[in-house]
Design a protein around this nucleic acid. Structure first.
Length: 466
RNA sequence: GGCGCGGUAGCCAAGUGGUAAGGCAGAGGUCUGCAAAACCUUUAUUCGUCGGUUCGACUCCGAUCCGCGCCUCCA
C-alpha cells in the first residue's frame, strides 16, 4: 500500500501525496526559544525528523518551514529578568536549539523563520482579515472574531453550539467580545518590546506568526502541518481560522500531531522533578543515538513512556544493530551467491518500507530489521550467506539508517584515532601470537578504558567503539 | 461534563476476525588461551474485567474498571 498518514482534521488515515509537482510543502511549529530543549519537545521534533526522512526516502522534494518563536510572554518576562533585550536572550536559546537537535541528528528544515523577522507579513495578514470584517479592536489590541468563522472547531472537533458567549470566565488580560476570540495583535504594554505598525504599537499574538510565515514561504495551502497534540487547540485551530478567513482556501491538507511523552509513567513536570532537558541526559552519560532511538522507537501517535531503563535498553539495541553492521563488513563469506538469501533481504526491505508507509510505524519497521538480522546471523553461521549476498544486506542496512540514523557512533574529539587503535590491535595480535597474553590483555584493557571493544574472530581481531 | 488516546510477558512495544512481531532484562547453549565480545535457542494456552456476535475474537458489539491528554498561549 502507498504512503498514508493519519489526518487529525478528518480523523482518518489517508493516502498522501503532495498537491503540486513532487515537492511536499510542510510547516512544523518550532521551539519557543526561552529555554533549552527538553525531551518532551524533542519527541515531537524527532518524529518530524522521521517524517522528513521518510518523505525524502520516498523521493519527494521537501520544502519544510519551521518557525522560531522569539517573542512571547515568557520570553519578554525572562529577558527582562535577565536584563537583556529579547534578541540577545533568544539568540542564546536559538543557537542551543540547533546545537542540541544537531547532536541527535535532526535535519535542519529548508527554511527556519523567526517570528520577529516577519512582523510585516503578520501585519499584512491581519489587515487582510480586517478587510474581510473578521477583526475588531479593543483597547489598542486587535482580535479575531470567531463568529465570522463558522467552521471554528473543525480541527479539534469541538462543538460550541451549546456554549454561551462569555459564559466562561475570561482569564485573558485583554477585553474580548467572545471568550473564544483570540488576539492577533497585542497593544503595547509598559516596559515591553514593541513594534510601531499601522495596527498601532504592540506585538503579535501567538498564532499569527505561523499563518503568516507558512503562507509566505509555502503558499495558501500546505501539504502538511505538524506539531505536538497540545497545539491542536487552540493554536492550530486558530491558525486555520485566521488563514482560511483570509484566503478562503484550506490552510493545510494534512494535520499530523505527535503524542506527548511521559517520564517513568508520570507526566513530565518541574514540580515532580522528572523534567529533563537533552543536556541533562548527555550529562548523565547517555548517548545522542540512544536518546534518538528511544524517541523514535515508539510510533509518533502513541504516548511514549520515557524511562532511564528504556534509555539503557535503547543503547543495547543499537549495539546489536552495529554488531551486525560490523560483522557484515569484516566477515569473509563463502564465494558465490545464495538467491534464497537475497529474497530474504528483499522481504525485509519490503516489510520495512510498508511499515513506514503506514503512518510511520517505526516499531514495526524496527521489528522487520531485527528479525532480518537474526536470520542473517544464522545464515552467516551456517555458511548460507555468500559473498554476493553482502551488497543487498548492506544496502538494506544503509536504507534503515537513512531514516533511523543510529549506526554511526558519536565520537568525542578526545577519543583515540582509528589509526592509533589499529596500531594497538596489531601489537596485540603479535603479542598473542607470541603467547604473551599478559601484554595482550594489557592492550585490551587500555583500549577498553578508551571505550574501544575488541572482538577476536576467526578472521582476526576487529574492534568497535562503545 | 464534552472531545480524543490508551490498557498485550519483569520492562518497552507491534498486531486489530483465523489462532500472540520485535527490543531490553532473565535462563540455556556455541565460539574462545582464559576472559571479553559476539551469535543461536528459549521465555504470554494468553492480550484490564464481564457479557454478546461468530465455526473462530487480542482483534467486532455492549457494559465496566483504570491511566493519559485537550476544552484559551504548553511539544
Amino acid at each position: 500500500m502507498a504512503l498514508r498518514f493519519y489526518n487529525t482534521l478528518t480523523q482518518t488515515t489517508e493516502p498522501f501525496s503532495p498537491a503540486q509537482d513532487n515537492t511536499v510543502r510542510m510547516y512544523t511549529c518550532g521551539p519557543t526559544v526561552w529555554n533549552f530543549v527538553h525531551i518532551g519537545n524533542l519527541r515531537t521534533f524527532t518524529s518530524q525528523d522521521i517524517l522528513r526522512r521518510w518523505l525524502q526516502y520516498r523521493n519527494y522534494g521537501l520544502q519544510h518551514v519551521m518557525n522560531i518563536t522569539d517573542v512571547d510572554d515568557r520570553i519578554i518576562q525572562q529577558a527582562v529578568a535577565a536584563g537583556q533585550s529579547i534578541y540577545d536572550y533568544t539568540d542564546i536559546y536559538t543557537k542551543a536549539f540547533f546545537e542540541d537537535t544537531g547532536k541527535v541528528r535532526l535535519q535542519r528544515p529548508e527554511i527556519v523563520s523567526k517570528a520577529t523577522d516577519h512582523i510585516n507579513e503578520m501585519v499584512a495578514l491581519i489587515q487582510g482579515l480586517a478587510e474581510n470584517g473578521c477583526t475588531y479592536e479593543s483597547e489598542g489590541s486587535t482580535y479575531f472574531r470567531i463568529a465570522k468563522f463558522p467552521e471554528y472547531g473543525k480541527l479539534a472537533h469541538l462543538h460550541f453550539e451549546g456554549m454561551q458567549s462569555g459564559a466562561r470566565v475570561d482569564t485573558d488580560k485583554y477585553e474580548k467580545d467572545d471568550a473564544r476570540d483570540f488576539v492577533l495583535w497585542k497593544a503595547r504594554k509598559e516596559g515591553e518590546h514593541f513594534w510601531d505598525t499601522p495596527l498601532g504599537p504592540g506585538r503579535p499574538g501567538w498564532h499569527i506568526e505561523c499563518s503568516a510565515m507558512a503562507m509566505k514561504y509555502l503558499g495558501e495551502t500546505l501539504d502538511i502541518h505538524a506539531g505536538g497534540v497540545d497545539l491542536i487547540f487552540p493554536h492550530h485551530e486558530n491558525e486555520i481560522a485566521q488563514s482560511e478567513a483570509c484566503t478562503h482556501k484550506p490552510f493545510a491538507r494534512f494535520w499530523l500531531h505527535t503524542e506527548h511523552l511521559m517520564v517513568e509513567g508520570e507526566t513530565m513536570s518541574k514540580s515532580k522533578g522528572n523534567f529533563y532537558t537533552l543536556r541533562d541526559l548527555f550529562e548523565k552519560g547517555y548517548s545522542p543515538e540512544a536518546v534518538r532511538y528511544l524517541l523514535t522507537s515508539v510510533p509518533y501517535r502513541k504516548q511514549l513512556n520515557f524511562t532511564f531503563d528504556g534509555l539503557r535498553s535503547a543503547a543495547t539495541a543499537i549495539e546489536r544493530l552495529r554488531n551486525f553492521e560490523l560483522r557484515l563488513k569484516t566477515t569473509k563469506f563463502p564465494d558465490g551467491d545464495n538467491p534464497a538469501f537475497d529474497e530474504r533481504t528483499a522481504k525485509a526491505l519490503a516489510q520495512f518500507e510498508e511499515a513506514l508507509d503506514d503512518d510511520l510505524n517505526t516499531a514495526e519497521a524496527l521489528g522487520a530489521v531485527f528479525e532480518y538480522i537474526r536470520d542473517a546471523n544464522t545464515a552467516i553461521d551456517n555458511g548460507d550467506f555468500k559473498t554476493a549476498n553482502r551488497q543487498n544486506a548492506d544496502s538494506f542496512l544503509q536504507k534503515f539508517d537513512q531514516v533511523f540514523d543510529v549506526l554511526k557512533p558519536t565520537v568525542s574529539e578526545h577519543a583515540l584515532s582509528d589509526a592509533d587503535i589499529d596500531a594497538l590491535v596489531a601489537e596485540r595480535t603479535a603479542a598473542k601470537k607470541a603467547k604473551n597474553f599478559k601484554r595482550s590483555d594489557e592492550i585490551r584493557q587500555t583500549l577498553a578504558d578508551q571505550n574501544v571493544i575488541l572482538e577476536d574472530t576467526k578472521e582476526g581481531t576487529r574492534w568497535k567503539r562503545k
